[in-house]
Every structure is written in C-alpha cells, then in structure tokens.
Design a protein around this nucleic acid. Sequence first.
DNA 1: TGGTTATTTGGTCAAATAGACAAATACTGG
DNA 2: CCAGTATTTGTCTATTTGACCAAATAACCA
Lengths: 96, 96
Amino acid sequence: MLQEERYTYMAGVMKALAHPTRLFIVDELSKGPRNVGELTEMVGMDMSTISRHLSVLKQNGIIAAKKQNNQMIYHLLCPCVLDMYKCVIKIKEQAE
Amino acid sequence: MLQEERYTYMAGVMKALAHPTRLFIVDELSKGPRNVGELTEMVGMDMSTISRHLSVLKQNGIIAAKKQNNQMIYHLLCPCVLDMYKCVIKIKEQAE
DNA sequence: TGGTTATTTGGTCAAATAGACAAATACTGG
DNA sequence: CCAGTATTTGTCTATTTGACCAAATAACCA
C-alpha cells in the first residue's frame, strides 16, 4: 500500500465532508458567506456544535473565516467541492 | 435545513470513501477487478478487516462483486469517484 | 469600566468505528 | 462426503465522534 500518507490526507478531507450538517454548511456557503449565528439558526442545533463543525471544515482547508467586528464570517474556499456532489448522485443512481 | 435526507445519504457515501484503506482499495480497483486475497495482501491487514471495508464500499454503491468459483471479484462501479481526488488535491494546495 | 452579543473551548456522555481473532459459511476437487 | 481454500460474520476492545451544557474569550457600545 504505497503512498499511504497521501491516502490518509485525502481521507481526512473526505471525512471532513462526510457529515450531513457539514455538507449542508458547504452547500449554504456556496451561495455566499455566512456567520455562525446564521448557520446555527438554519441548522437548528447548539451554536457550539456548529462552531465545531466549522472548525473541522476549516482545518481541512475547505472553508476559511474572516473576523468582522465581533462576528466570524465563513466562506467556501474551493467550489470544486460541489462537483463531488454530482458524483455522489451518480453513485446513488447506479445503486438503485 | 431542508432536504435533510439528501444530505444524510450523501454523507453516507462520502463517509464510505473517507478512510485511507478504502481509498486505496478504490484506487486499486480503478486499475481493474481484484479479489479479496489480492487486496488483503497489498494492504497488509487481516482479511476480515478488508472484507468489512469492501462491504462498506459495496453497501454505498461504490463497488460491486461477482462470484467466480470460490472467489469474490470486486470491481469499481463509478469511476467518477476518481475525480473527487482531483478536488481534494486542489483543496490541499489551497490549504498550504 | 461594565454589560451585551458572538463565538470558541472544556467536560461529559452515548453511539459509532476500526481493528484483531475465532468461528461460520460457501465453493472446489478428490 | 471430506479436506482445503476463500470469504464473511460474531464478538470483543480501544478509539473517535457528535451532541449538549456551561464557562471562557473577544469585540462592541454605553
């Protein structure tokens, strides 16, 4: 199993995306920047939970944040993530 | 958070891919069909562990298997999975 | 400075995951 | 049918994850 390190890194990025709430956040950020409060309200969970999800996405290079006054504004870094969705849809179609 | 079911399904597929060993298996199957023993040898883990990983990939519509004599031959269903890798590489570049 | 709002972090708990080994199952060939 | 090979499944253990609440931190405004 060569290039093991590479697979581990890639798995980390995939894992960061592999959660319904985080997928929603990515989808939402693809429409434009949002702050933590906005996302929290949309998801309907504790703000600390959303903050942790955002942290996971940020650590894996999927999103980034800017501080604006006392708010954190998150934005999507790499819109190509959305292309992954298309592949997943294909897989779903094939699975049926 | 509309379409919650859709996000959960997609997260399941992503999660199936979000493991170094399973990424390796997908990569290997993209080169051609393999049986469990071959994959086990390449990965260097217990065969039961590999079998479980294959099961996860199969359940999520990523791979499929055919029985040939007393062997199970696994093959990749949707090569578009490999395109995801490209996006992950982009993310990696951006994260640095 | 003190109060208010926005966000993150620490602690805890239950559930999910990944690994190993042993046992069960399925198929082949004598 | 029996032995051998290939694969899957049951069980156990250790680790990770995701959720909540409460407390800490940061930035604004009066």
